[in-house]
């Protein structure tokens, strides 16, 4: 019997023990690290964990695994654009009272490496073969998730990372974000306009749970599905970058320029 949307939303949760455990362990470690003293920042960290959990345990994940391309794209964007910056924002600024050795790899702090990590993560996982694999194969999906989180963290580290001295000056951060927005728009435009089958598996979904009748009932055809996927990467993803740019401007107008000029990347 076909599932109704309501049934799907209530029963489509997947309590993957690894995801649940990852959430709890991370939260526990975070608590330990800041001596269970929660500050405003901690909400960012918790929000990051919640989004992480929703992306991987909610019905979204079920759809992303080979059923709905747009769901895959939404999950992809959450993991690379939302979770990493939230977690990073939640970390205490280094030199505060805890020390995270290295944070991320030392070479990862170079803005060019960081930029290509973030943009590369978007492009790499939409090469048809890789996209297919991640949607159908469990280990490949796990690998995708981990790499998105890691590369996303690399990308956001120069902007919201815990090490102040590694952060880009706001006026350099704006082109950094804007060019990333262009790069991911181009991918989104390609997906939106390309012939059907950017990620071929979604053309003929492996529909073990018989979800397709419900989805077609929403009015989502495979063509619309791919277009929505592309548009998600094109428009809302850029809004995330734009939001970050506005955040940087806010920071720019709050901080004395002296500090910024010292780190101005234009100057050798």
């Amino acid at each position: 019997m076909d599932m109704t949307t309501g049934q799907f939303l209530s029963s489509g949760w997947n309590w993957n023990p690894l995801v649940v455990a990852a959430c709890f362990v991370t939260a526990y470690l975070y608590g330990l690290a800041c001596h269970w003293k929660f500050r405003r920042k901690s909400f960012f960290f918790l929000a990051g964990l919640v989004v992480f959990f929703l992306a991987l345990a909610s019905p979204l994940d079920l759809l992303a695994r080979g059923v709905l391309f747009s769901a895959h794209m939404f999950q992809h964007l959450l993991l690379v654009l939302i979770v990493p910056p939230l977690l990073l924002l939640g970390l205490p600024v280094l030199g505060d009272h805890i020390h995270i050795r290295g944070g991320v790899l030392p070479w990862g702090s170079h803005p060019l490496v960081a930029w290509f990590s973030g943009v590369g993560a978007m492009w790499f996982w939409h090469v048809p073969a890789f996209c297919n694999a991640a949607a159908t194969n469990g280990p490949a999906h796990a690998l995708q998730t981990l790499s998105l989180l890691f590369l996303g963290a690399l990308f956001w580290q120069p902007l919201v990372g815990p090490r102040m001295e590694q952060r880009l000056s706001p006026l350099v951060g704006i082109p950094y974000l804007f060019s990333a927005c262009i790069a991911c728009s181009l991918l989104g435009i390609w997906i939106s306009f390309a012939p059907l089958g950017v990620c071929p598996v979604f053309m003929n979904p492996v529909d073990k749970l018989d979800l397709l009748p419900m989805i077609r009932g929403w009015g989502v055809t495979p063509a619309a599905d791919q277009q929505i996927g592309g548009l998600l990467m094109w428009v809302p993803a850029c809004l995330v970058y734009l939001g970050a740019i506005l955040g940087l401007l806010g920071r720019f107008y709050r901080r004395p320029e002296k500090e910024m000029e010292k780190k101005n990347a234009w100057r050798k």
Binding site: F178, C181, L242, I245, L246, L249, G250, Y253
Partner: peptide
């Protein structure tokens, strides 16, 4: 000033 940047993008 900030909204100018937002409009431009």
């Amino acid at each position: 000033a900030g909204s100018t940047v937002a409009i431009a993008i």
